[in-house]
Design a binder for these strands. Structure first.
Lengths: 188, 188
DNA sequence: TTTAAATTTAGACATGTGTAAAAATGCGTT
DNA sequence: AACGCATTTTTACACATGTCTAAATTTAAA
């Protein structure tokens, strides 16, 4: 991302960022990710291409920014208040709700993009990395033969596997059922 | 893949396929996947770009063909002779050996490409799908609350997670240790 | 309000991608 | 050797990507 999100941004910059991400969301609901061109994003958002490249490295960079917005709507970053033994459930719950709120978009996304296209793995990877970061903190005290980082990755993989099953591969399940699936897969 | 691999191919076609995949291997050892252009592949292999497009859809398609060659060197497809209870170990063992034989390439690949770039997930996905296909057959008799397809995916995820840890993230382990990691992660 | 600094914009350029159709080449068969 | 066929190569085209520059515009501070 070329634009520095940490510094406080001007109204103009916020408007621009919003226009680009809105355009991306709009196009994602219409066609496959590969068929979306930067020219098209610029046409819809009414900004010249040079402006796009002032903010983003490339198309993928904008996509990632879209997932960031997506995540910021959830409470996943408030995990510090949660008791350790519930952390996995908390993470699953938060991502579940974020995805549930964008169910429409995800359905379209799955429809237009083959299952393992870069876009599907893009959202999968984005949230998986969020989960790994949080879980790695949590596992610090535990002891096991397998390195903790690997365990954190494994838990996150499993959580995202079930969520992908539900929202991308379209097998509707309740949050409770999702948790039961995860627990069974993790042998708990 | 535009070229039909099932039909018996002419010497010329074999030569061409070989030239393209050799060029890809050569370039993968030198630079990041994103920096490899089809023009470059064609220059090295001494074929015009249109010929490339006679055989492959795009750069990713050639990459996938490279993993196919890679897999065909292993015995993974002889899994029918293996007792069911050993199938997981067998799959892990075969992919372990295939990767071990190409350790050099994988090391370079990890060096030039950021960890979750499309190329790393490309090889990950390729072998994961192989594993899923085999394991889905195997699990047919088992009974569980979680759908079998999901279980097969989970097992494959776990196997590939550990192999990626070893060969891509470069934590040298023996085949035996890899198996112990997988067993522990799967709660066995 | 004025002004200097920072950002945005327009357009050009080099490079890359993918398709289509015509021309050339190789290869087995007669 | 000549024919017919499939494959390979050439050529041309339309469009996308990413970088760069100078001019226009916006912003923040005096």
């Amino acid at each position: 991302m070329k634009y520095d999100l940490t510094k406080k941004s001007t109204k103009g910059a916020q408007r621009t960022l919003r226009a680009f991400s809105d355009a991306m969301y709009k196009l994602l609901a219409e066609k496959s990710y590969d068929d979306i061109s930067i020219n098209e994003i610029c046409k819809i958002s009414n900004f010249p291409r040079a402006t796009f490249y002032n903010y983003f490295e490339d198309k993928k960079d904008l996509l990632n920014y879209c997932w960031l917005l997506f995540k910021e709507e959830s409470n996943i970053e408030q995990y510090h208040d949660v008791a350790d033994e519930n952390l996995q459930e908390y993470i699953l719950g938060q991502i579940f709700e974020a995805m549930d709120q964008h169910r429409e978009l995800l359905t379209q996304l799955a429809k237009h993009n083959a299952n393992n296209s870069s876009i599907v793995s893009s959202i999968y990877e984005y949230f998986k990395n969020e989960a790994i970061t949080i879980l790695k903190q949590d596992l610090k005290n535990q002891t096991s033969k397998v390195p903790l980082e690997l365990v954190a990755k494994h838990y996150s993989n499993t959580i995202l596997l079930v969520l992908k099953w539900i929202f991308i591969e379209n097998h509707p399940l309740s949050k409770r059922e999702a948790m039961e699936y995860v627990d069974e897969l993790l042998g708990k």
